[in-house]
């Protein structure tokens, strides 16, 4: 699915939907992390926002949906990723695990809209899709840690009673049409 997306996106790079471009002096791909350091000799505590290289955490390939680097733009201008895909006739489903995984933390929590930049409608969809994927046992390695500090096993065959067998769902759009939700 995403191979097709890549090709279609390349074609649409010229026809920019959002032609705003801002000049930035700081390095383009950086993230902040607050770090606290104590110097006992001087009794000073320094708290600073350090920049992290995102390539270490995210990897290299970034899908350019609009034909511009929207890292530099404001949050309000940033486009919704799902909506952009829908314009190209690509509808994300619960089986597209590699897509869903980007919007989740390691504990399986959904990232806020501030971070992911989804619109309200698509955030609703994302919630349903993650629920379905969890019920079907497709993303079992993204689960919260237990109080022991251990993680529950990712083996689907050891799940509770009816959850250990495979289940499937209809497309999100057909379920919505039939007014059926998990």
């Amino acid at each position: 699915m995403l191979k097709i997306a890549k090709n279609s996106l390349k074609l649409s790079a010229n026809s920019c939907l959002n032609p705003i471009r801002q000049i930035s002096l700081s390095s383009a791909l950086n993230l902040k992390r607050i770090e606290k350091t104590e110097d006992k000799t001087t009794n000073t505590i320094t708290i600073e926002g350090k920049y992290i290289d995102p390539k270490e955490t995210f990897g290299t390939g970034v899908l350019d949906l609009t034909g511009q680097c929207y890292q530099d733009t404001d949050e309000a201008v940033r486009p919704c990723a799902f909506c952009e895909l829908e314009k190209r006739d690509i509808k994300v489903q619960y089986t597209d695990v590699l897509v869903l995984r980007q919007f989740l933390t390691e504990n399986g929590q959904i990232l806020p809209r501030k971070v992911s930049g989804l619109c309200k409608k698509q955030q609703k969809k994302l919630i349903v899709l993650t629920k379905q994927a969890k019920h079907a046992g497709l993303i079992l390695n993204l689960q919260p840690t237990l109080l022991d500090g251990t993680k529950p096993s990712a083996d689907h065959s050891k799940r509770f009673k009816y959850l250990k067998w495979n289940t499937y769902f209809d497309d999100y759009e057909t379920m919505k049409r039939n007014k059926k939700f998990l």
């Binding site: 791909l29 950086n30 995210f58 970034v62 897509v99 504990n107 501030k114 971070v115 930049g117």
Partner: peptide
């Protein structure tokens, strides 16, 4: 495969990661 999969969105620059606490 997971790492080479294209990413759909970029994280905002001025976002503090520690806000995402459980």
């Amino acid at each position: 495969e997971i790492q080479n999969f294209p990413r759909l969105f970029e994280w905002p620059k001025e976002f503090i990661i520690d806000d995402l606490k459980g």
